[in-house]
Amino acid sequence: MRIFDFFRPSKPKETVTSAHHAKERLQIVMAHERAGRDAPDFLPLLQKELLEVIAKYVDVDQNRVEVKLDRNNDFSTLEVNIELPSSKKGEPLRIKASTSREPASKDKPKEKEAVA
């Protein structure tokens, strides 16, 4: 078929090429990975210690702990929801601890505790 190809202008058949997909996928995955590279390493430790402190006072069921991390451009939010066993009859006691941090080095985790 080469003899016929010769007379045809060589145009890529697909409008969106596979190389284009490659570039897009790389840009997305690498944006995430670069953000993760300078992610705070203290977060898992902070979470663990928070739990330990709470466990000192109340009996915490590890399965009733919910951890959520939200990454935004300007700030990240770490939300730790700990369900406490009911101290009073009937309604369960909940403690919510959340820390917000500014990007880069000026992290000053603010802790909020609220008993609902």
Partner: peptide, 10 residues
């Protein structure tokens, strides 16, 4: 050129 490989600029 055929769009099968990332180009140098990418």
């Amino acid at each position: 050129e055929r769009g099968e490989m990332l180009n140098v600029d990418d």
